[in-house]
Nucleic acid binder design. Sequence first.
DNA 1: CTTTCATATGAGCAAGTGTTCATACGTTTG
DNA 2: CAAACGTATGAACACTTGCTCATATGAAAG
Lengths: 119, 119
Amino acid sequence: MDENSELLCEVPEAHADVVEKVRDVLPDDDTLYELADLFKMFGDSTRMKILFVLMESEMCVCDIAELLGISQSAISHQLRILKQSKLISSRREGKNIICFLADDHVRGIIDQGLSHVLE
Amino acid sequence: MDENSELLCEVPEAHADVVEKVRDVLPDDDTLYELADLFKMFGDSTRMKILFVLMESEMCVCDIAELLGISQSAISHQLRILKQSKLISSRREGKNIICFLADDHVRGIIDQGLSHVLE
DNA sequence: CTTTCATATGAGCAAGTGTTCATACGTTTG
DNA sequence: CAAACGTATGAACACTTGCTCATATGAAAG
């Protein structure tokens, strides 16, 4: 009868209503992908560490590497990804490249995550 | 001279001080990994969609699948992962398994992310 | 008990990810 | 200029991830 519920489980009326309402409220696909891509940045421990460091202080690339005990190359690769996501930015200062957070939401996002992890 | 800065870039005093201070403030490795693992859950568009749906209403598995246009199997696999992360929970109701958000932080985390994505 | 419906699960595969290694680039210093 | 330092980058590789397909499980209805 109701073509919309062709694929729904066989519970007759109630479910279809709710499904329709929720469908209307969902963000568009572009927004959802952007959002997932943003959270991907926080989903790797190396990037997470870098962000934590930069929450405390701006810092040059090799200091980040040394502080975290991760190779300069690995750090540099991750910094590039973080820059592409507009989460961090950098400036040159003599021979060094100084990196710093470029987005105020980083703290907010991490804080929300910490609330979960620390129960 | 200073053995700590053996691997640091050659800027003499200033950097080592900052590095030491930041090192003291960093969360321990366990916390960092947990945090990254948490954000991984939000880093896939399928899981993101599921979480958005459940933010609006609890819902049975096959309705989620139909609403999102994703196979039942794929949804089920992702639900399992989300349950392992304690982000969602479920109960049986007749033939259906009803899924619902198990953590209040989900909304907070997603909202923070949205603030970034929507400029 | 048998069938049916809703869900779960395992194997297999294609695509994505993060690291290392070697090397290139660009700035500064002598 | 050449050498040295800090950083970036590309290729290669191991590993992970998310999907599909087939099938199993388990509650409910006949």
